[in-house]
Every structure is written in C-alpha cells, then in structure tokens.
C-alpha cells in the first residue's frame, strides 16, 4: 500500500506531530505509515483522508505489484 500522506502534509503545512494529534495517533504511527512500514486500518485510513478532505483513493494507492509478486 503506497500513500501520499507526506505530500498532503506538505500541502496543508502540517508536521507529523500535528497530523498525529489531529487524528489521535502517535507520531511514530504517522512516520511508520509514510515509510510503508505499517498499513493502517480502514478506519484510520478514512480518518486521515477525511482530515485532508479528500477521497481515500487520493491518499492511499493499492500497490498491485505486491499481489503479482505473491501470486508468482
């Protein structure tokens, strides 16, 4: 799962700490999501996208190459 949280943060001039506080998670969680170390739940993904007032697909992109590699 790829995401554009960093881009949206930059557009809204927000730090990781600001975003984390706004959606009620830790800064480490935002950092882990941005770096692709942690895939957020659907609930958290919706909260993030709602915070930026965009659709969830604009922030999170499903990476189909992962599926291809697994299928092979």
């Amino acid at each position: 799962m790829k995401n554009k949280i960093k881009v949206f943060r930059a557009m809204h001039d927000m730090t990781q700490e600001d975003l984390a506080r706004a959606i009620g998670v830790t800064r480490q969680t935002i950092l882990a999501i941005e770096k692709g170390k942690y895939v957020p739940s659907l609930d958290l993904a919706f909260r993030i996208s709602r915070h930026f007032q965009v659709n969830i697909e604009e922030v999170f992109v499903y990476d189909e190459t992962v599926l291809t590699v697994t299928a092979d």
Binding site: G24, V25, T26, T29, A32, Y38, P40, L44
Partner: peptide, 9 residues
C-alpha cells in the same frame, strides 16, 4: 498515554 492501533497491534 497515547495508545493507537499500531501499538495495539
């Protein structure tokens, strides 16, 4: 204490 879904996981 901020315990979110990642720490819970």
């Amino acid at each position: 204490f901020v315990e979110d879904e990642r720490t819970a996981r």
